[in-house]
């Protein structure tokens, strides 16, 4: 309570209108997540564990596009970065619940924000406890292949009878398993991770590899694979094969939201964001969704 009075007093002195602060169940006002982060002195950012080229361990240190972006956002906010590498749940709803608005039942609380969250408008609308803001990149499922193995790649049906590496359980796996009445099903080589799929391609164990373009480009660079023609294609069917990725925060934190939108906008305008992607071998593609209007 004391803490809240102090905040009120300072706001009044500065002559701002008192914002309607959300309250918890007992009616006690809850500080905006940004103020909580400032009190803590650090910005806690959730990124996926073992997710190259976005967030992964390299010689004991976490690195990658999302790790660099997290650092840049924290710097813009004047806070130190606290990284929270998370294990992916069955779907992103689980990740948002465990890391953004509720916390895992094993304990550990929540992070201030989470990166690399899919942002289809319908998906954004469906979330009521997390707010999906600030799209920062556009992904599309793509195929990298050895040109000599295929006469042309005008349709994914060209993949029939060849070996296509995919990450097990990924959208690429589902595409290969279900599209065209399952005609591509036996062409899929299902591997435990996208890294393993790209590695198999680099080792010439498969003729092609299918994955989101950013992962494909980043992993090809990381594994030092041969210079290979990479074809980006919007695959057909009802499968979702292109999407924006953005930032998720707990709903009802207008100050944190405004601060993050401003910080990201600054990173985009200065070209730093594009530079981060380029560093990991990824051609930057701007999100298709416009960032929401500032509150």
């Amino acid at each position: 309570m004391k803490r809240y009075s102090a905040v009120c007093a300072s706001l009044l002195m500065l002559g701002f209108a008192l914002p309607a602060l959300p309250a918890d169940e007992q009616g006690e006002p809850v500080l905006d997540q940004l103020d909580q982060a400032r009190e803590r002195g650090g910005l806690e950012v959730a990124v996926y564990r073992d997710f190259p080229p976005y967030s992964y361990q390299d010689q004991g240190r976490y690195t990658g596009v999302d790790v660099d972006l997290a650092g840049a956002l924290a710097r813009q906010l004047g806070l130190t970065l606290r990284l929270r590498p998370i294990s992916a749940g069955d779907d992103t709803d689980d990740d948002l619940r465990n890391n953004i608005w509720k916390g895992h039942y094993l304990g550990g609380g929540v992070a201030d924000l989470m990166l690399h969250v899919g942002m289809d408008p319908e998906y954004v609308k469906r979330q009521d406890k997390a707010e999906l803001i600030a799209p920062y990149f556009h992904e599309a499922v793509s195929i990298a292949y050895r040109p000599g193995r295929y006469r042309n790649m005008t349709t994914p049906l060209s993949l029939v009878g060849t070996k296509v590496g995919v990450e097990l359980g990924s959208i690429s796996d589902y595409y290969m398993s279900g599209a065209y009445g399952g005609r591509l099903r036996t062409s899929a080589e299902r591997l435990p991770t996208a890294t393993a799929a790209v590695q198999a391609f680099a080792n010439d164990e498969v003729d092609a590899v299918m994955a989101p373009r950013g992962e494909l480009q980043g992993l090809l660079k990381q594994l030092g694979g041969p210079a290979i023609e990479t074809r980006s294609t919007e695959l057909q069917g009802l499968y979702r094969t292109a999407w924006d990725v953005g930032i998720a925060i707990k709903a009802g934190n207008p100050k944190l939201k405004a601060a993050l939108l401003a910080a990201l906008s600054q990173l985009q305008q200065s070209g730093e964001l594009q530079k981060i992607f380029a560093q990991y071998g990824i051609d930057y593609v701007a999100p298709e969704m416009a960032a929401p209007i500032r509150p």
């Binding site: 997710f51 899919g118 289809d120 998906y123 589902y174 989101p212």
Partner: peptide
């Protein structure tokens, strides 16, 4: 659930 995500990528849920 044609539009959901897993580990940052689209996913059929």
């Amino acid at each position: 659930e044609p539009i959901t995500y897993k580990k940052g990528a689209a996913f059929l849920g």
